[in-house]
């Protein structure tokens, strides 16, 4: 502790400022590819916040899905578009007013709900890491007790498995047509 402030709080504010700055950079950058990079950095900030909350698996899933998956596909799409960064993105002023209005409304609504939540005043360091460990997640997902998630888990896994199999089938069909 430095001057009675827990170390994790200092890290939190540091990461929070970092994330806000990078998010602003992501929306205000003129180059689309740079925006994607700033987006990645702010996703990494989110992952660090999950780590501060001791949700290790959530942090890993955040990096795996967003940095390794979603943003890579975004960058792929950007790279396939030609004349990148030549004609700069611009927004008319009327749209800007609308955007500021929407953002402020969202901020107000979120503040209204967040300040009423009592758990926020609790320090994160008091929570036990076991509640968010990989094994706890697995047991929770596969439990059929009243607070278990076995049915949604099964539905989602069958859906994803079907997607994968269908992808393979489509890839196979294309080959036959060529012949």
């Amino acid at each position: 502790m430095i001057l009675n402030i827990p170390f994790s709080d200092i890290v939190f504010y540091f990461v929070a400022v970092f994330m806000v700055l990078l998010s602003i950079a992501a929306v205000s950058s003129k180059n689309v590819l740079r925006s994607a990079i700033f987006l990645i950095a702010s996703f990494l900030g989110t992952a660090i916040l999950y780590l501060l909350l001791k949700a290790e698996f959530m942090a890993m899933a955040q990096i795996m899905l967003y940095v390794g998956g979603v943003v890579v596909f975004i960058i792929f799409a950007i790279l396939l578009t030609s004349h990148l960064g030549e004609n700069k993105l611009s927004t008319p002023i009327s749209q800007k007013f609308l955007a500021v209005f929407l953002a402020l409304t969202l901020l107000g609504v979120m503040a209204k709900f967040l300040f009423n939540t009592k758990e926020l005043s609790e320090s994160i360091t008091q929570k036990s890491p076991e509640a968010s460990s990989l094994i706890a997640y697995g047991e929770r997902l596969l439990s059929y007790a009243p607070n278990g998630f076995v049915l949604p888990f099964e539905i989602i896994s069958i859906l994803l498995f079907m997607t994968l199999v269908v992808a393979i089938t489509i890839a196979k069909k294309d080959n036959k047509e060529e012949k």
Partner: peptide, 20 residues
């Protein structure tokens, strides 16, 4: 306890550097 997801997550950076 999440070493395998960690490895998969970090491999994502390899793709990024190649693309960039």
């Amino acid at each position: 306890s999440v070493a395998i997801p960690f490895i998969l997550a970090m491999n994502g950076f390899g793709i990024l550097s190649t693309l960039l």
